[in-house]
């Protein structure tokens, strides 16, 4: 059992929780993730480690499916049954020179820990974050403190630059030399943004988020094509060379259980709508 030490809603349907998990927190590095299982009947889902403080880790997620909705309804003092990690290879943090760390939507969650590590390694760090609208933007203040400069974009212009993070990045690339970039967000956003860095020859990492089961290299559910080779995102990644990734295949495989995911969340909402918003298992 792992204690939920703090919960907070950051934006519409976006939540952060701090979980006490010393075995994860003490060894977690930028770019790694954990697997969480809420209760005995629960699914194992991967969540990126967004920050670490002592023996606790922070994860941020959007309540979309059953597990994330369930997680979003947990309160401080509740527990989750299982937390395994840290999993995956850490980000390749080096003194590159100037690094851009780019987050889209809930993918912004992955950015602070990478930005902080890149900064510690002596890089000049440019943060670029974006969301559909300003109400969905998260971690702006925190990242403003970590990054040397922070740019914000919203699709509807309600905050920062009107447009996509890829547009902001392109403008930045035309003005200055960027040596390395991390792009984390929805698969389509990662695909489009990586296409922007490619002509500039910028070494670019993306953090892939395929469906996982064990998260330790045992099942192959998370297989992705990188440079034409099958790789397991859980153990060979989750970060890969953006310019080698087959994003269309990633998107296709992410949709493998759409029907099941839809029926699971519908059933969950029906079964929990009458109670006080707590977990059906509480």
């Amino acid at each position: 059992m792992y204690l939920i030490e703090e919960t907070k809603q950051l934006a519409d349907r976006v939540f952060q929780i701090w979980i006490r998990a010393p075995h994860v927190a003490r060894h977690a590095k930028a770019g790694q993730f954990l697997m969480i299982r809420v209760a005995e009947t629960g699914e194992r889902i991967p969540l990126t480690i967004s920050a670490v403080d002592g023996d606790s880790v922070r994860v941020i997620f959007m309540a979309i499916g059953k597990t994330t909705t369930w997680l979003s309804r947990l309160a401080t003092g509740d527990t989750v049954l299982d937390v395994a990690g840290p999993l995956g290879r850490p980000s390749e943090i080096k003194p590159y020179g100037t690094c851009a760390v780019i987050g889209g939507g809930v993918g912004i969650a992955s950015i602070p820990i990478i930005a902080a590590a890149a900064k510690r390694a002596g890089n000049y760090v440019i943060g670029i974050i974006g969301a559909r609208n300003s109400a969905l933007l998260i971690l702006e203040e925190e990242l403003a403190g970590t990054c040397d400069e922070l740019h914000v974009a919203t699709d509807d212009g309600s905050g920062g630059t009107h447009g996509f993070v890829s547009d902001v990045l392109k403008t930045a690339l035309q003005k200055q030399k960027i040596d390395c970039a991390w792009v984390v967000g929805p698969a389509m956003m990662m695909k489009v943004t990586s296409m922007v860095t490619k002509p500039f020859g910028v070494k670019t990492f993306v953090s892939l988020n395929p469906i996982m089961v064990d998260g330790t290299g045992m099942c192959g559910s998370c297989r992705v094509l990188v440079g034409g080779t099958t790789r397991f995102a859980c153990v060979d990644g989750p970060e890969f060379d953006a310019h080698q990734v087959d994003f269309d295949l990633l998107i296709q495989r992410q949709r493998s259980y759409l029907n099941e995911e839809k029926s699971a969340i519908e059933e969950y909402l029906v079964h929990t709508c009458q109670c006080s918003g707590g977990s059906p298992h509480a």
Partner: peptide
């Protein structure tokens, strides 16, 4: 992979979806 198929059912009880959350085709 047989590993994934079997893990979903044996470990995660996908045979009992939606009572258990892990799906399987």
């Amino acid at each position: 992979s047989a590993n994934e198929f079997l893990t979903r059912v044996n470990l995660m009880r996908a045979d009992r979806f939606p009572a258990y959350d892990t799906p399987i085709r």
